[in-house]
Structures are given as structure tokens and as C-alpha cells.
């Protein structure tokens, strides 16, 4: 039962703090900080469903976020759907896309699957860069009137912020819900030994396709909100390979396979990155540092921060899921 899980309350308290803190002092800088942290948590925890739960390394996870941005912006600005409906629509479209794709590429295992996901990212990027309705390589730019239904651009920034916090909370609750379900148990069996899982009765083809599709939904929704807030999207930003890699670094840092680990890794990495990017001397090195960090984690703490915690306090496993 999910209501008995401490992580659920941890999630709700965190989301409440994220909403309250910037609002109390009308602190726009803090808000911009926290929205980036939230997006990282969203991406890392949904990526965790594939890498941490199912054992399939997706190098192209950012494609869901970028496509979600495109589909959502298109629905909101060209078809004039209300923002939330457009975001949900983007989530559905991108999830269906992932489902079809998954049924094809999830036959591949290990490195072959990972390579295929890189191929998909590149293919989608090239397609969008040549797709007229989405502005080809120039992308799409929103005019200020777009924000009128939300009461103007200033208010739209706050509203999208709350929406993204909501998506973050949903992502963590989804991760927790799957982790303690029969579906989750089937995924873990696939991660540990896919051949054994089939022999034990798990319909691995269907399970893998579903989780791949599920892992696309909330990132796509978040993508709509974020690109709507930013007022523009283009293929080089939306489908940046580096962003996909950073998602993997976050997950490894925090501890793959755990709800809290994905969140912690997402948050910490984002803080580190913004610190490095704004520091005059280190800004060119943030990827070097990310790479070094990944190496250190894999070598010395393959379970990430949470795995390290488990090894110190084995009973933590039951509480910090």
C-alpha cells in the first residue's frame, strides 16, 4: 500500500516546500533554480524506470522531453488547446510513439539496445529539423499573446512553475507505485535475468514496451510546460545528446533503481551544473567534471549515494526506497 510508504510523504513535503519557498518571498531567482532542479528530477526518475528498474540503458531519453515540447507547443499555439490539455495530449502522443518504437527496438539487448536509442535520438532530431510545420531547424517561437489565457507572461511563469512541480511529484509517486507493484516485480525480474523472467511467466515483450512508453509520458508533459515557459524550441536544444547523458550521470550519482536516488541525483547534479556553469573559471569544464564524476561513481560506488547508504545502514532499504 502506497499510503504506508515514507517516500510518498517525503515527496509530498518536498513538493510543498518547492511551492512555498519561492512564493513566500516572491523570489524569482529561487523559482528559476528550483524549476531546473525539478526538471532534472523528472528526467532522472523516469529514466530510472528503464535503467534502474528494467535494466535497459536508454541513451535517448531526452527525445521524449523534446518531442513533448514540440507536440505540446504545436497543440497549444496552432490548435489553441488549453496548456494543460495540450501537455497531456503531448504526453499521450509521445507515449504512443514510444510504445510502437519499443515493440520494435526492445527486441535488442544490452549494447545493441543502447545504440538503437542513440540512433532514434539522431533520427528524430534530423526529422524535426526538416519538418515544415515545426519550423525546421529554426524551431518555433511563441508570441506574448500566447500567455494571455494565463493572465500574462508574468503569471504564466508562476503557473508553469507549479505545473512542473506537480509533474515532479507525479513522477516520484509513479516510480514508487511501480516499485511496490506486481508490474514492478516483473520489471525487476527482467532486469536481473530476462531469460529467467520469461520462463517464470513474465510477458517480457509487453512489459518492456509498456515501461518504455510509461517512461515517456511525464517527461513529454514536462517538456510542453518548459518550452512553453521558455517561449521557444529548436531541434538542437530539444534533442541534445549531452542532456541525455547527463540524465544517466544523475541516475548513477544518486543510485539507480531507487526512487529517492533518482531524485537526489537529479537535484544534486543540477545544482552542481549550475554552479559550474556560472563560475567564471569552471564554466567550460562542466562536462569534464560530469564525466569524471560518472567514472568515480561507477568505480567506487556503483550503487550511487543511496547504494552507499544501504551498505552503511542495511535497514534503510526498507524506508528509503
Amino acid at each position: 500500500m502506497i499510503v504506508r510508504r515514507p517516500v510518498l510523504y517525503l515527496t509530498l513535503i518536498t513538493a510543498a516546500l518547492f511551492i512555498y519557498l519561492p512564493l513566500r518571498t516572491n523570489n524569482v531567482l529561487l523559482r528559476e533554480d528550483l524549476i531546473l532542479v525539478s526538471v532534472s528530477v523528472i528526467l532522472a526518475s523516469n529514466l530510472n524506470l528503464m535503467i534502474g528498474y528494467t535494466g535497459y540503458v536508454n541513451f535517448g531519453h531526452i527525445v521524449f522531453y523534446g518531442l513533448g515540447g514540440y507536440v505540446g507547443l504545436y497543440l497549444a499555439t496552432v490548435w489553441h488547446w488549453p496548456l494543460i490539455v495540450a501537455a497531456l495530449g503531448a504526453g499521450v502522443v509521445v507515449s504512443l510513439f514510444a510504445l510502437l518504437l519499443g515493440l520494435g527496438i526492445l527486441r535488442l539487448r544490452g549494447a545493441y539496445f543502447a545504440l538503437a536509442t542513440i540512433g532514434i535520438l539522431q533520427a528524430v532530431q534530423s526529422f524535426v529539423a526538416n519538418f515544415d510545420p515545426w519550423g525546421r531547424s529554426t524551431g518555433m517561437y511563441l508570441s506574448f499573446e500566447v500567455y494571455e489565457p494565463l493572465g500574462g507572461a508574468m503569471r504564466a511563469l508562476w503557473i508553469t512553475y507549479y505545473l512542473v512541480i506537480g509533474v515532479m511529484a507525479l513522477s516520484l509517486i509513479l516510480s514508487l507505485g511501480i516499485k511496490i507493484s506486481k508490474f514492478g516485480l516483473g520489471l525487476f525480474a527482467i532486469r536481473e535475468d530476462e531469460d529467467a523472467a520469461v520462463v517464470l511467466g513474465v510477458n517480457t515483450t509487453v512489459y518492456k514496451a509498456i515501461i518504455y512508453s510509461v517512461s515517456a509520458f511525464l517527461p513529454a508533459v514536462a517538456g510542453t510546460f518548459m518550452y512553453y515557459k521558455n517561449g521557444m524550441i529548436d531541434p538542437s536544444i530539444a534533442f541534445e545528446f549531452i542532456a541525455s547523458l547527463e540524465g544517466i550521470v544523475m541516475l548513477m550519482l544518486g543510485g539507480k533503481g531507487t526512487v529517492v536516488g533518482a531524485a537526489l541525483g537529479g537535484g544534486l547534479y543540477e545544482k552542481l551544473r549550475s554552479y559550474l556553469l556560472t563560475s567564471p573559471r569552471l564554466s567550460n569544464f562542466h562536462l569534464v567534471i560530469a564525466g569524471g564524476l560518472l567514472l568515480l561513481v561507477i568505480l567506487f560506488a556503483p550503487g550511487g549515494l543511496i547504494g552507499w547508504l544501504y551498505s552503511l545502514v542495511p535497514r534503510a532499504r526498507k524506508v528509503i526506497e
Partner: peptide, 13 residues
Amino acid sequence: PLNEMTALDNVTV
């Protein structure tokens, strides 16, 4: 064996 899972979880699968 499903290595990183407990004996109980293995059998529960």
C-alpha cells in the same frame, strides 16, 4: 537466480 532480489522475491515472481 534473480541475484539482486531476495529469495522471497524470487519465489514471489
